[in-house]
Structure formats: structure tokens, C-alpha cells
Design a binder for these strands. Sequence first.
RNA 1: UCCUCAGUAGCUCAAUGGUAGAGCAUUCGGCUGUUAACCGAAGGGUUCCAGGUUCGAGUCCUGGCUGAGGAGCCA
Length: 434
Amino acid sequence: MTPVVEIRRVSEHAGQEVTLQGWLYNLRESGKLLFPLFRDGTGIIQGVMVKSAVPPEVFDSVRGLTQESSLRVTGKVRADKRAPGGFELDVSNVEVLQLIPGEAPYPITPKEHGTEFLMDHRHLWLRSTRQRAILGVRHEIIKAVRDFFDERGFTLVDTPIFTPSACEGTTTLFEVNYFEDKAYLTQSGQLYNEAAAMAVGKTYCFGPTFRAEKSKTRRHLTEFWMVEPEVAFARLEDIMTLGEELVAFLVARVLAKRRPELATLERKIENLEKVQPPFPRLSYDEALKILQGKGSEIQWGGDFGGTDETMLSETSEKPILVHRYPSQVKAFYMAPDPARPELALCVDMIAPEGHGEIIGGGERLADLALLEQRIQQRNLPRQTFEWYLDLRRYGTVPHSGFGMGIERVVGWICGLEHVRETIPFPRMLYRLTP
RNA sequence: UCCUCAGUAGCUCAAUGGUAGAGCAUUCGGCUGUUAACCGAAGGGUUCCAGGUUCGAGUCCUGGCUGAGGAGCCA
């Protein structure tokens, strides 16, 4: 029995006979020579088979292979300058697990395809080199997020996905039947995080988030993953620094561990290497001046649109922190700036290269009376917030936190045009399958 | 919800209102170092749907469906 080896490890077996388990990626043919390309989820290697060197039935079975047919292949690993990975496999035998028939071939060919076709075949599209690279970077970012908070003494506290009402009231929610009642899919773990922070000091939640907005842009999903830290006694400045350190940490980790994937994606490494703290910090008022100077129509009191964000991101090679927006455009739980009560102690982080807002957060309103007033003003159902008001009744303290959308971060770090490629099975307006 | 664009072979796309085509994929044949291999041949069509204009509609008109990009809103 020859050892079963992963393609990414074939270099450790140069000169040896090994068995690979995987799929046929492509087959090139030149007379009595065959060049089957194998993939196994860890890499791709080209096999070489000379007709005179193997039994006729082995040659014929390889010659008849179709794209994505599953197989086990045995051969000798040989270093070769001509091979993209530096190694080739001199194939001696192939065990075909499933031969895909020519009448119903694998749909995704090594040529160009349109978005709709690829999205309809997302379950197969994931096998492509590019999608595998993105999955790898996504995995690395998620692991790095966990490492970052764990190393800083945060406790992961999971927040519920079924919620009784809106966290922020304004956004559209997905409604679901909950026995005799109605429930909503969470749009943020924020309020529960505040409860957890009062219990453990530093907490974060990390899970799926749902938004029923009919947004149809390259930055929107209806189901996406969000990590939300919340820190007792932290002020706005503390949380801005935390976000800055987190993002720099994530970029550094991907640069350290996922170079091959970034190369596959043709990501400009130099741009990522510039993402070092400190990031530029702009007040809303300062950002507004810059935007108006660049010809934006935005007036004081309005929130930034996608075009405004892109314009701002073009002013820096690093992410930008924009803080102290007018309270009127922000959620009810944002603390007012004591120096200028019309402003909220909040912060958005805008990614470079037009990838949009990746972080939103700030200092929470710790005062009971003011919070009650805000809930009333915005016509929020007081009863469902009673437990939240308890947090202000029993030992309220200043505290701050933020939410970071994983898909936008993955999209930015991978340099993707659209967030739909950053999540294995994207859920979007008009896209619920596969 | 609104604006713009698109829908033709399995896929990516051509086709002035006048016989519906190419490349890839598939099948067959050729080639002993191919790199989205190449060369030759074959099969493959409800031109998104329903009406309308016209001698004649893939093409023009009306309505609908589906998709893409964007706006608003957001991470």
C-alpha cells in the first residue's frame, strides 16, 4: 500500500510512490501522452502518463476521464521545472470512483461563465481554485477574530437568533412564526451583549445576522456574519482603538498565513501591507467638509451614502474612522457627546478601495432617564425593552462596543467586487438557492 | 420601492426587419511535454413568455417574467 497524501504535501514525497484522492480537474492529451490535472481540495497537480509505460486498460481509463470525475490515483512524485507547483505525478494506476458520463457533463467548464449561472451552481462553483482561496481566507479571518478577542480576555457569549423585537426599530426584520407568537431573526446581538458585558466585563458574540432590507448592491446580503465586542467601562476612544487593532490584526494574519490564496485572487499585497495603526480619524464634521469639497450633495445631518463612503475611502490607503455623527441618523442607544449633545459618540470604520463600512459602533447610553425618553420618542415597544432598561437600573456604567461585518472584511481583504463570493451560500434579495 | 441595462445551443457571445452562427463543452479522429493545449469532423435551437405591427420579427411596439448594476437603507 502506498501512502495517501494531500497534494499540498507532495513536495515531502519527491521520488516516492503515493496515492492521491480527489477529482479530475482537466485532461490534456497529446497522442500517446496524457496530462490529467488532479485536485483534492488542498491543491492541484498535473499527472503524466505515457501510453507505452502503463497497461492499455489503465491508459484507456484515464483517457476516458471527464472533468470532476472522482478517483484515486497512484504514481511517483517527481520534481519538474515545467510544473506550476514544482511537482508532477508519473501516474501508474487510477481507480475511478465515479465516471461522470459525457451526456451529462460537469456544468462548470474551465472557461468564463456569467454570474447567474455560477450562482445557480454555487454548490459546484465552490470547487474552483478561486472560491477555495476565498473560503481559506474567510476561515483564517474568522479564526483570527476569535484569537484576537480570546487573547485579550474577552468571553464569547452567544446571543439569541430569535428575538422578540427590533434592536434598533428602524430596519426591516424577517418575521417568523414562533408557536402562537411572532418572532424576528436577529439583526444584532448588541443589546444582549450589553447585558453580557455587565456580567463578564469584556464580551463578544459572533453569529449570523439577518436584514430584510431590499438592498441590492455589491455590499449587501440578507444573511451575514457579524462579530460584536462589548466592553464595560470603555469609552468611544477605547473602542475606536480596539477596532483599529482588530482590523490590523486580521490583515496581518492573512498576510502571514494566506499568501498563496491572495496570489490566486491576484490581490495587491502592497495595499494590505499599508494597513498599520494608527488609522486616520475624522469627525463627522471634518468628513462632511471633505465630501462637500469633492462635490457631494450631502448636508449636515444626513448619513453618508455609498458614493460618499467610496469618496472618503479614496482619501486614504488605510481604513478610516469617522466618529461623532449627528444623533438623529444613529440608533437610540448611542450616547450623546457631552460637549455637543446633538452628536452621538459613535464610530464607523470605512474600508479602503471602496469596500464600504466594515465597522459600526460607539459608546452606549448609560443613563436610564434619557434612554427611556429615546425609546418613547422613537415609538419603540417599551415593554420588550424593560429588561434592557434594567441594565441601567442596576449598576449602570459607561460601556462601548461595535459590530464588524465579516463578509465585507473578507471582500476587502480578498479584493472582491461583490460580497456574494465571500460566504459559501449567499442569501440575497432574489437569491435563496442553492 | 425606484432608476438603468440585459435575456439567442449545456456555457460565453455574434447575427442591417430577409436561410439562426462562432468559440468552449459533448461524441469521433489526429498529435510523445501539453499549460483555459492544438488540428479536423459530427451532433446540438420553443431566440425568456404572451400579445401586436409587417409580405416577413431574434431584431420594432405593448405587457409580463427572470437576472445584473445602482439608489434609498445598512455591516
